[in-house]
Design a protein around this nucleic acid. Structure first.
Lengths: 231, 231
DNA sequence: TTGACGCCTTGAGGTGGATCAAGCCACGAG
DNA sequence: CTCGTGGCTTGATCCACCTCAAGGCGTCAA
């Protein structure tokens, strides 16, 4: 197991479309890195070590305010990548990252990654549109923080997280504390908000499992059209 | 003047690095479009018409909340582009745009743009890193909104807007109302905040002209380390 | 000049969500 | 079993910023 990266890279959404030769090159350069739960992966301002691909576990990317407050920008689970943006733009790490669960990742050094981008036009196009999607989702997040209130943010997040489309139940893969931070709330407010949504019958909650009962109404709440029944 | 776009495109930061042949193709396809002050350019949800390059005037890109509240994502002045992200990602327009001053722009249809991206690997790389920079700046904005208070946001914006590096005076190119919206403040709060910064001697204000007097202290304020003298 | 309109400023009061401080529950270790 | 720890919930209080309302000031057209 000199290189567990092989599987990780082949299975990840970013690289799985690459040609065999590119993949081989990638794999031959990639290092496998492991982190314990809670371990810091990099700090804001560190030189960017390259692109990380998560194989197992969970990673969170976050900013730290002078006062110590943290804001979670991004959660990365199996198949996802992080630090791509810094690697592409040649910035230093723009944020902190740590493991919220024991994690194993493949690390692709920046230089090798850049080689592939310059060699493979198709891949480059994919990266470009990938970045555009990032921008899109960030704009969504901005919109969230600015145009919606706490309840709206929670509602929208629930809708987006539910891949079942309101049919079955799904579970929140992160601590409430971190989710709260991602939505720029305190865990207290998140807790109260979920409770309120449940009271109104829009959702059911059980531990970290959630089921959406009234998708349409929840959508209304997300759009700021608070239904009358809201206390 | 069948095509004022020639100059616009040659002078803009995004396309000025292109080869002559690519430029020629681009110019031959581009349309010149004019907007009156206050005129709406596109709405959120419209199919993306292509990439706009601003030649003269000023454009603001903004989101609209159900309640009518608007949030300015981006100001575009001469040489800048907007709607690039939607064009690349093939989304519909993710926001509204209107002219805050009489404006003349070059419009490059999406299809033509895509042709260039697939034909010109170098350009594609540039676009990719351009998108990465967008992400970077959006993360900065997010950080601003989440980790800083009103005063910190204003301070940071002033520092970033001052190309003279604290030497001379510079002027805010947009209405205070729009700047306030960009920083997620009301114009009232912006007004008061500027006043307070001026009272403390960190800046001088005269109409829309601003001079930074104490860059270091202003930087501290931006970083949330409010100096004692702050009322 | 006069009036109307936009933009900015100033003041007084309201509020959403943060903060602080307990208590509760589940789970793992001893 | 008990204890300890980490995450979640709940309630009371507080404060930064918003909202609403009014007045000043510059600009443009008549």
């Amino acid at each position: 197991m000199a290189n567990a990266s092989v599987g990780i890279i082949r299975d990840c959404s970013l690289f799985c479309g690459l040609s065999e030769t590119s993949l081989d090159k990638l794999v031959s350069i990639a290092r496998t890195v492991r982190f314990k739960k809670g371990e810091l992966i990099f700090r804001e301002g560190d030189p960017c070590p390259g692109i990380f691909v998560v194989g197992e576990g969970a990673v969170r990317v976050f900013k730290l305010a002078p006062g110590g407050k943290e804001h979670v920008l991004h959660f990365a689970y199996a198949g996802a990548t992080f630090a791509e943006v810094a690697a592409i733009g040649k910035f230093d790490c723009p944020a902190f990252a740590d493991a919220t669960e024991d994690a194993v990742c493949a690390l692709i050094p920046e230089r090798e990654f850049r080689r592939i981008v310059t060699a493979d036009h198709g891949f480059c196009i994919e990266m470009m549109t990938g970045m555009a999607k990032w921008v899109h989702s960030l704009v969504g997040l901005l919109e969230d923080l600015v145009l919606r209130d706490a309840t709206g943010r929670v509602a929208r997040h629930l809708i987006q997280s539910d891949e079942t489309g309101g049919q079955g139940e799904f579970s929140l893969p992160m601590r409430k504390k971190d989710l709260a931070s991602h939505l720029n709330l305190t865990s207290e407010t998140l807790s109260r908000t979920l409770h309120r949504l449940a009271e109104c019958g829009l959702i059911e909650t059980k531990e970290r499992k959630i089921r959406i009962r009234e998708l349409a109404k929840l959508q209304d709440v997300a759009d700021g059209l608070a239904p009358a029944e809201f206390a």
